[in-house]
Write a protein that binds this DNA or RNA. Structure first.
Lengths: 339, 339
DNA sequence: ATGAAAGCGCTAACAC
DNA sequence: GTGTTAGCGCTTTCAT
């Protein structure tokens, strides 16, 4: 057994070390890095040499502590494995990175309690701003966010009472648009497949209410307490078939994943789509136009959403615009072949 | 134009403030939070009351600076919108979060230069460890990482010269396994579709070399400089058809995305799979078992990979095991219907 | 153009 | 069980 405690002290190179080597004081090194124009060309050169020789990496922790500016932005999303959030995040971080901000990420798994814990942990790192998914948060979370005094953007939904900024779309309107389409296309019966996600449930409720009210027929609901997967979509169709499937039924899925599964299972069972069963997805993912038949769905522009969320925070930094700005990015109903 | 400078000073509540309110010193507040057992139950109560009343959120920046422990882990992946990295990341962060670490994320877009910049920025935040995707890094990146003196894990590949720990699989072996299968299944011709990704190109080369050597027939290569998408997979098949497609051709795709597209386009063109064209994917994604025909592919267990990467870092913290540990998680060739 | 001093909010010794 | 004293490595402010 070798002695583990013989590691070099690993103090880390500081600005003072670099300054010593370059024959200047520590502050001059600081200036050379943050406002080089205030340092003579010659000193600048010596400092950069010293940095290269020592392999100095500035300590942003100390910098942030001293300046109350961390250049960090916290982002909380339900799940990174869900492409709709991942692609939004990608667009968001491209912009933020371009403005010198780094992203601290957490997954909340659609769980407000977990979100509250994540918010607390993130706020302790003093981010310059924070992005949240959804507009429903625990009272504790709301209070912390309000106290934090930094720009906050809530995305993927719209709110009448945003914490600060808000960029999203109306889930109720999106569901109503789908119901209106189904009604006008002449479907007589409807069913829903819904994931364990508050926004999906809100869409289901709006769809069922609207379709039910106008058709007079109750909408059959299949709910899962998990995230949407292709496999669960297949399973839902199996369940639907075990009961009896009236002619001219349309299936409103809370995600394209479910819809894809429904299509696959319909195919496997010899059902024709949309003849025997019509399917409406949600999200307009990559594959939606390539399924058989191509998927009728609701498109959300995640790129735009991510970019606008970044812009909202940037505006917050500049104290531009009201601190209760709600930006509705809308949605688009895409009719393809499945309904 | 209203005056923007009238904001409240927003100094933020400190431990000293909490202590004052609770009638104790600042250190006692610190102890109450980090080792409550060292504080009397009564004082603890008063401190927690004070925290609740002030809405105090500890400043982890200051804590990290003082203790040289940030509880932050940096993770650099090519892209978060690629499910294979996203799902690895999910497994990784579940474990790290469970051990009290937060994730700082960056996307490198398969670009070593961008990776080097991201590494520099991340290291300045003094993470306790760092995860990198791939084993090829710029010399500058390598040097910084070595100097940082923190556990590093390189994933998604294996290396003879890891920076520190390494968890992945052999891309060459995976490609050879695919080529061996193709050969023994009696395919006479082969083509490849490859994304703009160094590891994908290494697989292509290994496949082409191995298949070519044993069959004596050159492998036709279609390369893209972008990430794999379903659409590009379709496009590749169109290109293949414009030239002439010999009987008994197998298509080795660098990702399931390409393979899915190839399947869709083959269907659209009236080609039978695997009769007219056989297709092999890579990754075994969610949809791979559900395509028509189901996709023959190479499975990588991303959950295991992410978990093992986390374990490697945790072992690094504990100074357990050699600092040149390479962990091969392997792969599995899955024969389904497409080849 | 450069430096000296103070302090950001915490943890780490070391007292008592 | 609690307090005191020193920093951690920067940025800020004020001199020069």
């Amino acid at each position: 057994m070798t002695d583990r405690n013989e590691d070099p002290p690993k103090r880390g190179v500081t600005m003072a070390d670099v300054g010593r080597l370059a024959g200047v004081s520590q502050v001059t090194v600081s200036r050379a890095l943050s406002s080089p124009s205030k340092v003579s060309a010659e000193t600048l050169q010596r400092i950069h040499d010293a940095i290269a020789r020592t392999g100095f990496v500035p300590n942003a922790l100390a910098g942030a502590l001293a300046s109350s500016k961390s250049n960090l932005v916290a982002a909380l999303v339900p799940s990174v494995t869900n492409i709709v959030y991942a692609s939004m995040l990608h667009a968001f971080s491209e912009i933020m990175w371009g403005h010198g901000y780094q992203i601290m990420l957490s997954e909340t798994g659609y769980d407000p309690e977990r979100e509250e814990k994540a918010i607390a942990t993130h706020l302790s790192r003093r981010p310059d701003a924070i992005l949240l998914t959804g507009v429903r948060h625990s009272p504790g979370a709301r209070r912390m966010l309000l106290n934090a005094g930094i720009p906050v953007v809530e995305i993927w939904d719209i709110s009448e009472t945003p914490i600060d900024r808000c960029v999203g779309f109306s889930h109720v309107d999106a569901a109503i648009a789908a119901a209106d389409f189904a009604l006008s296309a002449g479907y007589l019966h409807a069913a829903t497949i819904t994931a364990g996600d508050e926004r999906a449930q809100r869409r289901r409720d709006a769809f069922a209410r609207h379709f039910g009210k106008r058709s007079g027929i109750a909408v059959q609901q299949i709910d899962f307490d998990r995230s949407a997967t292709l496999g669960l979509g297949r399973e839902a169709v199996v369940q639907l078939l075990q009961q009896d499937l009236p002619a001219r039924t349309v299936l409103f899925c809370s995600s394209d994943q479910f819809a894809h599964g429904a299509l696959v299972e319909a195919g496997a069972q010899g059902l024709s789509v949309p003849g025997d069963l019509a399917v409406i997805g949600f999200g307009d993912q990559d594959f939606a136009a390539q399924t058989h038949p191509p998927l009728t769905t609701v498109r959300i522009d995640r790129q735009v959403l991510g970019k606008q969320a970044a812009q909202a925070l940037l505006a917050g930094f500049a104290k531009i615009g009201p601190s209760n700005a709600v930006h509705d990015v809308g949605f688009e109903f895409i009719q393809r072949g499945s309904a």
